[in-house]
Nucleic acid binder design. Structure first.
Lengths: 200, 200
DNA sequence: ACCTGAACACCGTTCAAGT
DNA sequence: ACCTGAACACCGTTCAAGT
């Protein structure tokens, strides 16, 4: 031991991220720890700190992968429809379904906060922008003459709503009776918001 | 030691909840622990487990107090205006400001999940309903002829949006340029949604 | 009956020491 | 140069023992 060079720095990083995702899926957010990740890739905890600044940095890479998958899940839905309202509705439902099927990863993506008030790195912010861009296009179709700044803001307004509904819905904080379903709520929400957005 | 009876069960519970709130305000969610709460009220950790089933139960009471305060902050705003749209706008802003000023407590309220998939106790669900009731009244004013089921759902649609905007906005996940402000975004969101809600 | 203190099984993070 | 193993300062939770 104590000198192996079985894997490069980058290989260890990738292995760790993959292991973390598996642990998240199997044991949830609270089941994840640096020690478990290290054990699962056959290294000591110390090695993880040779390759990542700390656990937060590892989680950042995990969240980056989640954000990429989320983006893919949403935009795949968008291609099917030519009507922008239908596109946005099915994108919203795709967002919900991704959250339902990957609840631990989805919840880590939004609950994880860097310490102090450290800002997210630029390449991570870029990924967020890319997701919003996918939502923005159908909105531009609906209101082609409005200035870009307004569409940018509307994108965030609409997506905040979809996100909030998924978040509260999946954590049972909407007090939904059996009477109404989260899918129907999200569809109706998108409809109502878009009607207001199209009013100008 | 080992037999004091300085305080009743209920007194220790209240002291613990108050201490937890102070720690949350001073050290944030990650700074809170059962051991710190115990130390701060002058008891051993073990005593906490005589009075609460576990840490989750203590946090539930902390969250109940937060929910009460949130409700009060929101409904105080509602009384000032007679116009329902203005009421809902200022309620949304009151929600945002409470979240900004009590970020640790607000974030615990929504991030805390009971283990397994245990359901929230009835008295806690009742508090959630009470908050939604405050939002529901102005919506009923806007659409007095629509059935209650629809207004119930619209309440959740609207409030999910406000919640999502606060959540993403305060955790810097909206990728807001300096160009637009979270307050303006929330006001515009409420306007757009209500326009769609009033369309029927 | 009430409370403690120590124990158990975990954490994240660091770093001297080994090869 | 790369990795380990042990240490440090923390966790939540339990429970025999003390008064």
């Amino acid at each position: 031991m104590a000198r192996r060079s079985d894997h490069s720095r980058e290989e260890i990083q990738h292995m760790a991220v993959a292991a973390a995702i598996t642990i998240l899926n199997e044991q949830g957010v609270t089941g994840l720890s640096a020690r478990k990740v290290a054990k699962s890739i056959g290294y000591t905890v110390g090695t993880l700190y040779l390759v990542f600044k700390n656990l937060d940095e590892l989680l950042l890479y995990v969240n980056a992968a989640t954000l990429d998958e989320l983006h893919q899940a949403i935009t795949e839905e968008a291609k099917i429809h030519t009507d922008p309202t239908l596109s946005l509705k099915s994108m919203a439902l795709a967002y919900l379904h991704y959250a339902q099927q990957n609840s631990a990863r989805w919840s880590l993506l939004f609950s994880h906060q860097l310490p102090d008030g450290q800002l997210l790195p630029d390449w991570f912010e870029q990924k967020i922008i890319t997701v919003f861009d996918g939502v923005m296009k159908p909105l531009q179709q609906i209101q082609p003459d409005v200035n870009e700044q307004a569409v940018l803001q509307a994108t965030r307004e609409l997506w905040s709503g979809v996100h909030g509904a998924c978040d509260l819905g999946l954590s049972n904080k909407l007090n939904m009776g059996a009477e109404f379903e989260i899918e129907a709520l999200i569809e109706s929400f998108v409809e109502n918001y878009l009607f207001g957005f199209a009013k100008v």
